[in-house]
Design a protein around this nucleic acid. Structure first.
Length: 373
DNA sequence: CGGATTTGACCGGCGC
DNA sequence: GCGCCGGTCAAATCCG
């Protein structure tokens, strides 16, 4: 399966840089549209000129009207593109979470000894040589903290090691320490997001709510690294680090550690849970700009055909909950079915296919561009 | 006024 | 043992 490629570069590269236009890549109608819409900094002037040319025999007021409409259209399409970028970001994170879970389950089902090896493979793929040594370094207090909190995190470990009971004896803790650390490592994923050059912030919209708890300038990168915890903390242990890439500062690298143990905030279940929990949190979630559009259309529909998969509702995919999924995935054919269902659901979604096409076209253009250098 | 963010201090691992 | 460095804490500050 190609699902082993865990370092997912989801930078849409929707041609933020108008210079790439000069490349004569295979431009579909879609990619042309996206290119057109993302020449944000220079486009308005260009379109003004275009409008004037077209209406050279008409009155000047008509020309400005045309230009105004074009600019308006430009803004609209730009907003649409931004939305698609957010959607893909959210989906990629969900995909990562689900893939990790599936791999864990498969590895453990195959052979306990092979499980660790498989996880180390994942880690190897997810931690290219560019990853600074410090990011893989684990502090003693961290692992201790994770051991203490594993009743709400690390579904695989909870399933296989101690049935989710974190209050086991100290000897249990000792015996499970090593595999757990490997699981923790395997939950690290990195996401690359291309931002507008003018955007200097360190915000990666993935649909979840994050609370910033620190910022640091690291040695190998002049850009500061921001540290975030999931706003559902301490019940949700997920952290993320966001830092601009050294090579291309328009690219933001988000490193996620751990898995969310709650539904994605955009899902109805999460919304209901949130509404029941606290009003302040409600406010924060309602304020998230990416919640209204993407995830609702990106929800995987796994409830349709097979009864065995019916228990694996879409919410389990969006925010994996170990027990129902583990119960549903009973064999290779079921796993195959799940994969097929995921693919079908994704390809049926016009928004996803449009975003994917734009991303691919952008990536191809960039590759052509880099090959010429 | 309460929650989110900022930022300097602090902690612990690692290399010398 | 010491200094460096990444990561975290928590008081101060900001903001809606």
């Amino acid at each position: 399966m190609d699902y082993s490629s865990s370092l997912v570069d989801i930078s849409l590269d929707l041609n933020l840089n108008p210079l790439r236009r000069s490349d004569d890549g295979p431009a579909s109608a879609l990619s042309v549209k996206k290119e057109w819409s993302f020449g944000v900094p220079s486009a308005p002037a260009n379109f003004m000129g275009l409008g004037m040319k077209v209406s050279s025999v008409k009155e000047e007021s008509t020309a400005t009207e045309t230009a105004g409409a074009l600019v308006e259209e430009l803004n609209r399409v730009s907003a649409e593109n931004k939305k698609l970028t957010e959607m893909l970001t959210v989906m990629c994170e969900n995909y990562n979470a689900l893939r990790n879970q599936l791999m864990d389950y498969m590895a453990r089902n195959a052979h306990p000894a092979e499980a660790a090896a498989a996880e180390q493979e994942v880690e190897k793929e997810q931690s290219p040589s560019s990853l600074s040594p410090a990011s893989s370094r684990k502090r003693k207090s961290d692992s201790a903290n994770n051991n203490n909190n594993d009743n709400y995190n690390l579904p695989v470990a909870a399933n296989n090691n101690n049935n989710g009971n974190s209050e086991s004896s100290s000897t249990d803790e000792e015996s499970f320490k090593r595999p757990r650390e490997e699981v923790i490592k395997a939950k690290i994923s990195r996401v690359y997001v291309r931002t507008e050059p003018s955007d200097t912030g360190l915000i990666v919209k993935d649909g979840y709510q994050w609370r910033k708890y620190g910022q640091k300038v690291t040695r190998d990168n002049p850009c500061p690294r921001a540290y975030f915890k999931c706003s559902f903390a301490p019940s949700c242990p997920v952290k993320k680090k966001v830092q601009r890439s050294v090579e291309d500062q328009s690219v933001v690298v988000a490193t996620y550690e751990g898995e969310h143990n709650h539904p994605h905030p955009s899902t109805p279940e999460a919304a209901a849970a949130t509404a029941a929990s606290s009003s302040s949190r409600n406010q924060a979630i309602a304020g998230s700009p990416s919640l209204t559009a993407g995830p609702t259309t990106m929800t995987l529909d796994l409830t349709k055909s097979k009864p065995s998969a019916a228990s694996t509702s879409a919410r389990n995919v969006v925010a994996p909950s170990p027990k129902p999924l583990a119960g549903a995935v009973d064999g290779p054919e079921i796993q195959q079915f799940l994969v097929e269902q995921m693919a079908t659901s994704l390809t049926k979604d016009p928004n996803f296919t449009a975003a994917l096409a734009a991303a691919i076209s952008g990536r191809m253009l960039q590759q052509n561009h880099s090959e010429r250098w």
